[in-house]
Amino acid sequence: MDPFSTEGELVNIHSAFHQGQYQDVIDFDASAFSPENQLPARVLQLRSKIVLGQPEEVLAEIEGEDTPDLVAVKTLAQHAAGDTASALHVAQELAEKYSENATVQVLCGTVLHAEGQSEEALALLMKHQGNLEALALIVQIHLQQNRTDLATKEVTAAKRWAQDSLLVNLAESWVGMRIGGEKYQSAFYVYEELASNPATSSPVTMAGQAVAELHLGRLPEAEAALSAALQKYPDNAELIANTIVLNVLTAKDTTELTSHLQKNHPSHLLLTDLEEKSAFFDTIAAKYAPKVS
């Protein structure tokens, strides 16, 4: 039986991970799981640690392990720790050797994609056998490549066999946020349901809800959602970034938030993108000058 299915014993830890409740994942009592589920649970916990910014600890913890799953975790940790070159190298190796391993698919797929090897990542992920995480990753890669059509197909196909799965719902919402129109509202409902329930609420779901509100043009609601979320998670990058966007839209000052983001997440997409555009602006603007100055 699929340990992640609704009856499986990993369902809770798995859901918690994907709802972004990483601390809860780490706090799970992994020893209670049956032996064959010990490893997946541990992988989830290790991944949570990486997300929470403790890749070094993870590296130390799995030093010397050679199970492919843990090696995959290692690549992810290396990548997160900034050692991208060797991470990529190992990931490529793993992808060749253990392409059937679900953990390897997902983690190495992540690393490959993060390193711009999206096609390779996709090739690896496509080998999955009903691995929802891989599916979600495929969807995300498609979306990042602006192939909403392909992403939609993946989700529709997945809905046939995993209708109620959290990941499929989330993936569908991601796609919905790209398609827009009525899909915004359904995405909103998914996130709202998760965010409004204290058991499933997390920065990830709250950000999702706020972003959906924002896309729906409901700025006051988005503002309420974001400020509530920021109070709880003042340092979450996505929350800050989206608040910046919102504040620009509502014509409010963003300097403080920007410097906050700069301080905590200097490499956030918003900042790097903006920096690039700022330089771009200067280059282009320099081409124009008045005839008489």
Binding site: Y22, E133, L214, V248
Partner: peptide, 28 residues
Amino acid sequence: YKASKTYLPATSGLPPLVNYVRRTTEET
């Protein structure tokens, strides 16, 4: 430029999904 995009956290370990904020929410 800033206001035109939102950041939707998706798979952990990857940068957020960028979505584009539209002028009319109904338009697809």
